[in-house]
């Protein structure tokens, strides 16, 4: 029993546990967990379509409703300058990326808390929970995409050939969405009431982003700082240009958005890894 008295009150400083973090290793570990992500996504989707009578319809309804609301209430009498594009089409092209972002953040932000019971039972890279939420939001976006095709047919237009340029924009959008989701999900574990603030913040974000209106409302001098602060602005503006107008994106604004998106992604990853060590303690 002499061991009992030999235990000091505090561990010696040199014993402090430091987790060695290697970016490569973290990514490799995530890659091996891809099947788990697939399973988590399947779990959500299967469960959702078993419950809901309308099934896929629920994923189309949110952007569609917003599009109709914008068309009939905001745009009444052609108040919004769309550069000659039919307004419903203009709004829907903006709503798709926004809905993806908003669904990722609100669902992914709660993903750790929702899986709290697993956090202190099962070992896996913790990022799988927010990532699978983002994948689900992505699937929803794909499901809502055919509506766009129908709208093109109704308005007797077609996507411009420059649509291929949407790919780099998509990459920026993904980086930004992932970064924000990482931050919101990890902080939510420690600040649980963020759950109540999030819908309000996202609502504000919808109007702070050129979804219902065009980028032209922002004064030219502020366009670059604005793109830096809100990378979704140049991305959505870019989509409209390449898909609807056949113009190249405003590259300088896209670059500013790319820069801040990458910064945010790096910040989000570091923050997530930092906070991760405590998830199981408080979950």
């Amino acid at each position: 029993m002499d061991h009992l008295t030999a235990v000091p009150a505090q561990p010696p400083v040199h014993l402090r546990y430091h987790r060695r973090l290697h970016l490569g290793e973290a990514i490799r570990e995530l890659w091996t967990a891809r099947e788990l992500i697939r399973t988590l996504v399947e779990r959500e989707l299967r469960a959702r379509y078993k419950q809901a009578v309308l099934g896929t319809a629920w994923t189309i309804i949110p952007p569609l409703t917003l599009m109709l609301v914008f068309t009939f209430f905001l745009h009444r009498g052609g108040r919004i300058d769309t550069g000659g594009i039919p307004y419903p089409l203009f709004a829907y092209v903006g709503l798709l990326p926004w809905t993806f972002f908003s669904a990722s953040v609100s669902r992914g932000g709660q993903s750790l808390l929702q899986n709290a019971a697993l956090l202190n039972k099962v070992y896996c890279p913790r990022e799988v929970y927010p990532i699978s939420s983002i994948v689900i939001a992505g699937v929803d976006t794909l499901v809502a995409l055919p509506i766009l095709a129908i709208m093109f047919a109704i308005f007797r237009t077609a996507p411009q050939p420059s649509t291929l340029l949407a790919l780099p924009l998509l990459a920026v959008q993904l980086a930004f969405t992932f970064g924000v989701t990482l931050i919101v999900s990890s902080v939510s574990v420690y600040l649980r009431d963020l759950r109540h603030a999030l819908p309000i913040l996202l609502q504000l974000g919808l109007f702070a982003t050129p979804v219902a209106y065009g980028s032209e409302v922002v004064p030219a001098a502020l366009r670059l700082p604005y793109a830096f602060i809100n990378p979704l602005a140049p991305v959505i503006d870019g989509y409209r240009r390449v898909v609807l107008l056949g113009q190249p994106p405003a590259w300088d604004a896209v670059l500013a958005g790319t820069l801040s998106s990458l910064l945010l992604l790096a910040l989000g990853s570091i923050l997530f890894k930092r906070l991760e060590t405590g998830f199981a303690d408080v979950a």
């Binding site: 561990p11 010696p12 014993l15 402090r16 546990y17 987790r19 956090l119 202190n120 039972k121 099962v122 070992y123 060590t277 405590g278 199981a280 303690d281």
Partner: peptide, 15 residues
């Protein structure tokens, strides 16, 4: 046991 399972992280020590 949770620490051995890597679900929790120790404050100090070698593992």
């Amino acid at each position: 046991l949770k620490i051995l399972n890597r679900v929790m992280y120790p404050y100090a020590g070698r593992l």
